[in-house]
Design a protein around this nucleic acid. Structure first.
Lengths: 295, 295
DNA sequence: GATATGCATCAATTCTGGTGATAATCCATG
DNA sequence: CATGGATTATCACCAGAATTGATGCATATC
C-alpha cells in the first residue's frame, strides 16, 4: 500500500560496518552498542530478504551488500546535503559579482539556482569589460568576477576553454552578404566580438555592425531571423541557432576562449564563497567522454 | 557524535503532502491517520529547525520545503532502486548478445556493470559482422545485437551517431608514410575499417595492412607506438591516442557511423530486457550541452 | 587446548511513533 | 459578523519497535 522505506540509520550502520570492517568499531563510531548494530543489520537483511554482509574472520559485503552500499552512501550524502541546504537558506549577506555584458546570458541559470538556494543573500551583478573587472576585483570593489581570460592578467581560476564559432540561423544566407552583417554588442563591450572583427579584417572580409545593442533580445532576433550572424561558444548555443562551418562559409576560424573566475583579495564572506563554488561546479568542463581505446 | 539522519517516512509524507496539496489526502495515500502525518511533519520541521510547509487555504512549500523536496524525492528514488537492485541480483537467466569484433572494446564497462548487477545471469557474447548479427537476431539465435547501422537493415534502435576519425599516436609521423600503414582487424571483420580503406582507395592514397589481428592489444600497441594509424570514434579514444586532423594530414574525411541495437522478435526474457535498457542508457548520446543563446 | 576477540541472541526496558478523539483554524457563505 | 464545513493541530493513550547489557557461541591466536 505504501512504498516501503528503509531505515536510514540502518544504512548508516551498514556503511560504517563496511568502512571499518567491524561491527564493534561501527558501534563505537556511531555511538551505539554493539548489539544495536547487530540487530539493525539483522532487520535490514530481513527487510531486503537477503544477506548483505558475509560474516567471517574478515567482513565482506555480499553482492547484494555491494549494491546496497553505493545507494546507501548516496542517500546519506543527500541526507546531509538536505540538512545543509535547508540550514543555508538562512544565510544572509551580500555578493558582488562582475561579468562581461555577453555573459549576462550565460550565467542566469546558475544565478537562479544560487538565488533559490540562498534567498536571503543580496546578489549584485555588475557588467563591465573583462579587464576592468579584473581591476575591480583586485581593488576589492567586487567579490567575484567571471571574465574571458586575459593572457596578461594572471590569477584567477580557469573554468573552461571553448572554441568560438560563427553562428547563424539554420538555412540563412546572411553569411554570404557583402559586407557581412554582424549582430554586436556596442564597440569595446564584448571581447568575443572584437576577436571576430579582427579576424575578418585580417582576411580582408568586409563587415558591418548591422545590429548593435546592449539588449540581448535585440541581437538575438535578427540572428535567428537570418538577418545577421554573430559569434558564440557551442555551449552558449540555443536551439534556434547553428554553428556555421568555417570551411563551407569562408569565414575566418576563431580562437578558443578561456573563461576564468577571479576572487577579490582577502577572505570572502560565506555567501561569496558559496557562489564561487557553485560557479566552479557549474561551469567547469567535465572530463573526457571516453576512457577505452580501440585500434 | 553520529551524523543525524532524517526519517525517510517523514520525507515520504512531505512529498505526498506537496503532491496532493493536502495532509488528509497524503494520509489516505500512505495509509496513515491524518494525525500521524501532522506529527511527522511537525517532527521533521523541528528536526530541521524550520517550517517546510506554508499552511493556508492552499498548502505551499516554503523555500526550505522546496530545497528539501528535491532531495527527498531523490532519496526515495534511491530507496526503491536499492530495493530493486538487491532483489534483482537474484534474477537468473541467460542473455545472448552479439556485437562486431571492434565493439568488444567499446562495451566492456557496460557489460561489467551488468554482470555486477545481475550476477546470476549468464551472458554470452558473440562477435560477428554487423549484417550477420542482424540476421542472427532476426532468426532469434541471439537476443540482442549492437551493430553499426546498415542503411538497408531496418529495425533496431539507433543509440548514437559518431564521426569516424583517423587516429594515431601524438607526434607520430606514421600518417605520412607511403603506403599508409594501417592497424586492422582481419579483412571483412570491421566495417569501420572497410569504410576507411574505401575512402583511401577513392582518393588514390596507397595503404597497406601493416598490422592485422583479432587481438586488441596486438593492434593497439603499434598504433600507440606510432607505427601505424587506425580509425575510431572520439568516444572510443583513449589517452594514448589522438585524432589526426584530416586537413593537416591529407587523409580523406570519414563518414559518420550509427550504432544501433536490434532485439530479437518475440518477448525477451527479463534479463535480456534489463541488458537492453542498460545498453540504451549507457550508449545513448545525451542532449545538447547548453540551453541558452547569445548573439 | 586455553584465551581472546568478535558477532549473535535474549530478556528487560525505554521510548518512539501511531491512533482516535477532540480542539483549534481557516474560509466560504448567508 | 456569525455559522458551517473542511482541514490541520494537539492530546492522552497505547503498541510495538529499537536499544541495552548480559550472555552465548564461533573462530582465530598462541
Amino acid at each position: 500500500m505504501r512504498p516501503p522505506v528503509l531505515d536510514l540509520r540502518a544504512l548508516q550502520s551498514l556503511v560504517a560496518i563496511l568502512d571499518t570492517a567491524s561491527f564493534t568499531r561501527a558501534a563505537e563510531q556511531l555511538n551505539y552498542s554493539q548489539s544495536a548494530i547487530s540487530m539493525q543489520i539483522k532487520r535490514l537483511e530481513a527487510e531486503l530478504g537477503t544477506r548483505l554482509i558475509e560474516r567471517g574472520s574478515v567482513l565482506r559485503p555480499t553482492r547484494q551488500g555491494r549494491q546496497a552500499l553505493g545507494h546507501a552512501r548516496e542517500m546519506l550524502r543527500l541526507n546531509s546535503e538536505l540538512r545543509q541546504r535547508v540550514a543555508e537558506s538562512e544565510v544572509a549577506g551580500r555578493v558582488r559579482l562582475g561579468m562581461p555584458a555577453d555573459f549576462a546570458f550565460y550565467l542566469p541559470d546558475t544565478l537562479t539556482v544560487f538565488a533559490e538556494r540562498y534567498p536571503q543573500v543580496e546578489t549584485e551583478v555588475r557588467t563591465e569589460l573583462s579587464d576592468a573587472l579584473v581591476r575591480s576585483v583586485a581593488a576589492g570593489e567586487i567579490d567575484l568576477a567571471i571574465v574571458t581570460r586575459q593572457a596578461h592578467s594572471p590569477g584567477g581560476t580557469r573554468l573552461r576553454r571553448e572554441p568560438l564559432k560563427w553562428v547563424g540561423a539554420p538555412g540563412s544566407a546572411a553569411h554570404r552578404q557583402e559586407p557581412l552583417p554582424l549582430a554586436l554588442y556596442p564597440e569595446n563591450t564584448c571581447e568575443f566580438r572584437q576577436a571576430a572583427t579582427r579576424r575578418l579584417d585580417a582576411i580582408g572580409r568586409a563587415w558591418r555592425p548591422a545590429y548593435v545593442s546592449q539588449a540581448f533580445a535585440a541581437l538575438h532576433s535578427p540572428v535567428s531571423a537570418g538577418l545577421a550572424v554573430t559569434v558564440a561558444t557551442p555551449s552558449m548555443l540555443g536551439a534556434h541557432l547553428e554553428i556555421l562551418d568555417e570551411d563551407a562559409t569562408g569565414l575566418p576560424p576563431l580562437p578558443e576562449v578561456d573563461i576564468a573566475m577571479h576572487r577579490r583579495p582577502g577572505r570572502l564572506g560565506y555567501a561569496a564563497r558559496q557562489l564561487a563554488d557553485l560557479l566552479v561546479e557549474r561551469l567547469r568542463t567535465t572530463g573526457e567522454p571516453g576512457a577505452s581505446v580501440t585500434p
